[in-house]
Design a protein around this nucleic acid. Structure first.
Lengths: 160, 160
DNA sequence: ATCAATGCAAACCTTTTGCACGCGT
DNA sequence: ACGCGTGCAAAAGGTTTGCATTGAT
């Protein structure tokens, strides 16, 4: 159950990381959620995109296959997927939320994020380890947020 | 002009840091902005509060003195103050923006932030220095975000 | 057959904008 | 007197909700 045989039909994705469609869908099924066509397609698209996109962009992509789909379903599924830790959310500079398929739900990480295309790169290490933190007396840490924003190589190019 | 004589009438604030009301207002004046009663009061309140608060909370506090004040003016001033780097903005977990008077516009810093009351503590150091970053090839860093969220000592207490 | 998922519409919340008037300079 | 600042009202976005229907199991 943990090491599912995900050598299915080879995808556009080359790496044999845990990010296979089947694994994601299995996780949902295990939790008792139904694998509807829309839900499958959302996971498909997010895997395919492999970058941060807005709910609006996601809806647009979904409408190709499901013209009548609207925001409510998108958001409901985004919430669900986030709860199940299958996607990651980040608030961009303009205040808008964007979402990407979870890189690795089990491994804590941070990202370089391209503010143009939403593509990401892993950051080596975590500031909570690297900084010798002097936590204020009595302060109880819950979460932290560390993100590096900029232009990726491709988007630097295209802005020339 | 840089070292203004801000020994005016002593305030509730004890430290003789750059965070004096006069200094903030001067900065605005220098830029050619008018020092209206509302603008003064916004700076007053933010200095007094000395923590992250929402536009809504700020408006509430302002309405005590200016009952007819509405969100538009609050936001217009928050934008202005942010442009002038007199306040800092942070997006909290729930997705809502909160604002606080700038701790020190000249010194780069990060915060421990209490998600209950919005009070902050400075973090020693910056992850961009502490982590030996391997910036992805061609990636052009623009900004970064690092915040540690949790409960401050006081808010831990009150939740017992 | 059951209960979750969806579509539709409407509400909601935060933030923004246009315009006429008021006020700091 | 000039021009920014403000109030009002309305719009704009993004996100959420209630309810009836559809659909996966």
């Amino acid at each position: 159950m943990s090491h599912s045989h995900d050598h299915s039909h080879d995808h556009t994705h080359t790496h044999e990381t845990p990010n296979t469609k089947e694994k994601f869908l299995e996780r949902l099924k295990e939790q008792g959620f139904k694998l509807t066509g829309k839900r499958r397609t959302i996971v498909d698209i997010l895997l395919e995109e492999d970058r941060y996109i807005s709910a609006k962009d996601l809806l647009e992509l979904l409408k190709i296959q499901f013209p009548r789909l609207s925001f409510d379903t998108v958001y409901r599924n985004l919430h669900l997927l986030k709860e199940e830790r299958l996607i990651e959310e980040s608030v961009f500079g303009d205040g808008g939320s964007k979402f990407r398929i979870a890189c690795d739900a089990n491994h804590h990480h941070h990202h370089f994020i391209c503010t143009v295309c939403g593509r990401t790169q892993l950051v080596e290490g975590c500031p909570m380890d690297a900084l010798q933190l002097e936590t204020p007396a009595g302060f109880h840490i819950e979460t932290h947020r560390f993100e590096i924003f900029g232009h990726c190589a491709d988007c630097c190019q295209s802005s020339l």
